[in-house]
Structures are given as C-alpha cells and as structure tokens.
Simulated assay, not measured.
Amino acid sequence: MITLTSSMPPMNPEQFVWASLGNSNTERIIFNLLGETNRTVKLADHIICNTSYELEPAALALFPEILPIGPLLADHQIGNLSGYFWPADASCLAWLDKQPEQSVIYVAFGSTTIFDQIQFEELALGLEAVKRPLLWVVRPDTMDEKSDMFLKAVMGRIGKHGRIVGWTHQQDVLNHPSVGCFLSHCGWNSTMEGVSNGVPFLCWPYFADQFLNETYICNVWKVGLSLDKDATGIVTRREIMNKVEKLFSDKAFKERALIHQEMVMRGTQDNGCSNKNMSNFIEWMRM
C-alpha cells in the first residue's frame, strides 16, 4: 500500500488501472496515456475538477493547482440533457412515488461494469432475498438470452416490489425520498451524486479510481459499506443480504450521509469555495 500524504487514505498499487486490466497491451496503452496526460496538464493555466474542498481537503492541499467546482449535478444544467449512452426511462420515478420513504435499494453500476453469469445470478438472488423495494439499472449491452431469462424469473418472484430499467436519470432517482441505499460501482460521478443527495452506499468497485473512491466512502466519510468477495472471488447472496440489512438498520450511515450532503452543497452556494472557483474561472475566460 502507498500513500501520497499521511492525510490521504492508502492506495493498493495492484488496483491501479494500468496494472489490473488483465491485458498487458491495454495496460501499456493506459499507462502511456496517463503519462502523456500528466505532462499535458502542466501546460494548463487552470485545472478545474468536479469535487469539493469538503470531500478531499488533503488531496486538494497536495495539488493546489486543481480548483474544485463541484458537485456538478444534472439538475444544475440549463436546457435538455444529452449524451446518455442509452435512452433514459423516466417512468421509474412514478414507481418510486409509490414506495415508502427511504426504503428502496437503487442498484446501478455505470456504463462499463460487466459481470459474468455466476456473479450476475448471485447478485440477482441476493437482491431478491433482502425482500426490500428494488430499482435496478440493467444495461442492455450486458444481457444475453440466458441472463435475460434468469432475470425475468427473479423479477417475477419479486413482483410489484421491484423495477428494472435499462438506463435512467440517476440524479432524479437519488434525489427521490423513497431511495434509502445506493448499490454502486463507485465511479466518481455516481459518488458525487450519491453524496450530494445524502444517500448511503453499498460499494462494489470494478476498476480504476473506483477502489480509492470506495475507500473514501467507507473509511473516510463513513457513509457506506464494502461488499466483500469470498475465496472464489464472488460476492455472495448472503454477503449482499447481510450488508443491506446492516446499512438499513444502522441509522448512523444515513446521519453521516446527510451531514456530508450539507457540507458539499454549502460549497455551491454564493459564498462557497466551489462557487467562487467557478465564478473566478468564468471571469478569467472573459478576459
């Protein structure tokens, strides 16, 4: 394990993106790309980033040239949103309206995570076994005929207490009062959206920065729990059941999540650090 400063959490070099893809040629390409990126950013007059001083004070102190302007959320944008990988299904919001407050498990693994058949089935059976309202984003590109049949059988047993969508407006979902838990791959955009809406996490990182983001969520901010793999590398249905119940039963996770929500959103207000940085950057561009 290595640390950049004693105030930041440790990182496992085996999880660095250029060392964990399982393909030496791809890893070499990524390593060279990041090296070129590091050389290029030194030429920039300003570097802005979707984060906040409140979330990463030590990292931003170590790299003072990076100006946090986050959280940047979808509902802050003007006009229609664009750039989604798949058509977003907004009908799930009406389904959320019918669920009890802070009861729903929202499951979404971003645009890159892929599970093998064994892990996919174990995940589905674990979510079924917790017997809580479930909103699950299952990307169209991850499903084959076998997975589709298995998922339909599981959802048939869950019935009206579960909802599957191919893609959705995540900010709207996380902002909904019925959502009580976010089972996430811990991509940075998802992390910022979850924290900004005061939703506790169950963490299932896949690659790259997601492992360090998990460390912040679970060990630094303490607003979530990690899902651990067994000896065969599988997150079992029992592990999913146990962690879901622990997260819902311990109200301290929600309390800390709300504290961090208030912290990061304060930075976007008129006198907040993120707001000032963004305003100064806009003024610099106008010069």
Results as ranks from 00 to 15, higher is better:
residue 135 L to A: 06
residue 132 R to I: 03
residue 71 P to Y: 04
residue 169 H to C: 13
residue 13 P to K: 09
residue 160 K to N: 14
residue 165 V to F: 04
residue 101 E to R: 14
residue 43 L to P: 05
residue 221 W to D: 09
residue 150 F to A: 02
residue 258 L to K: 11
residue 278 M to S: 07
residue 74 A to I: 12
residue 140 P to K: 11
residue 10 P to S: 13
residue 34 L to K: 06
residue 195 V to G: 03
residue 113 T to G: 03
residue 211 F to C: 05
residue 110 G to F: 00
residue 27 E to T: 05
residue 46 H to A: 13
residue 167 W to C: 03
residue 207 F to M: 13
residue 57 P to C: 10
residue 283 E to F: 02
residue 107 V to N: 00
residue 226 S to T: 12
residue 147 S to Y: 04
residue 284 W to A: 13
residue 20 S to D: 09
residue 105 I to Q: 00
residue 200 P to A: 09
residue 103 S to C: 08
residue 239 E to R: 04
residue 140 P to W: 05
residue 245 E to K: 11
residue 68 P to K: 05
residue 248 F to M: 11
residue 106 Y to E: 09
residue 128 E to Y: 07
residue 160 K to T: 15
residue 152 K to G: 01
residue 283 E to I: 13
residue 24 S to T: 14
residue 40 T to V: 08
residue 136 W to M: 00
residue 146 K to Q: 14
residue 255 E to F: 07
residue 147 S to E: 04
residue 62 L to R: 13
residue 60 L to K: 12
residue 112 T to N: 10
residue 193 E to Y: 01
residue 240 I to P: 02
residue 35 G to R: 11
residue 102 Q to Y: 12
residue 107 V to A: 06
residue 205 P to I: 01
residue 202 L to K: 01
residue 157 R to N: 12
residue 265 M to D: 08
residue 106 Y to N: 02
residue 131 K to E: 15
residue 156 G to E: 08
residue 83 G to W: 01
residue 116 D to I: 02
residue 59 A to I: 02
residue 53 Y to W: 13
residue 63 F to K: 15
residue 185 H to I: 10
residue 9 P to K: 10
residue 218 C to V: 15
residue 199 V to K: 09
residue 269 Q to A: 14
residue 140 P to Y: 08
residue 91 S to L: 07
residue 4 L to H: 12
residue 211 F to Q: 13
residue 54 E to D: 15
residue 62 L to V: 04
residue 249 S to E: 14
residue 79 G to V: 06
residue 14 E to V: 05
residue 237 R to W: 01
residue 41 V to H: 05
residue 274 S to T: 10
residue 116 D to R: 01
residue 277 N to H: 13
residue 164 I to M: 03
residue 156 G to R: 02
residue 53 Y to N: 13
residue 159 G to V: 02
residue 184 S to G: 11
residue 5 T to E: 10
residue 199 V to Y: 00
residue 63 F to D: 11
residue 215 T to G: 07
residue 7 S to K: 13
residue 122 E to P: 04
residue 228 D to W: 07
residue 198 G to W: 06
residue 81 L to C: 09
residue 246 K to N: 08
residue 285 M to K: 07
residue 233 G to I: 08
residue 244 V to H: 02
residue 78 I to E: 12
residue 139 R to Y: 08
residue 234 I to Y: 06
residue 212 L to P: 00
residue 208 A to P: 04
residue 248 F to V: 00
residue 287 M to P: 00
residue 178 S to Y: 09
residue 262 E to D: 13
residue 48 I to S: 03
residue 282 I to K: 08
residue 233 G to R: 04
residue 35 G to H: 10
residue 221 W to G: 09
residue 270 D to G: 00
residue 28 R to S: 13
residue 167 W to T: 01
residue 46 H to M: 14
residue 86 W to P: 05
residue 244 V to Q: 01
residue 286 R to I: 10
residue 190 S to I: 06
residue 231 A to V: 11
residue 211 F to M: 14
residue 236 T to E: 05
residue 216 Y to Q: 03
residue 119 Q to N: 03
residue 277 N to P: 05
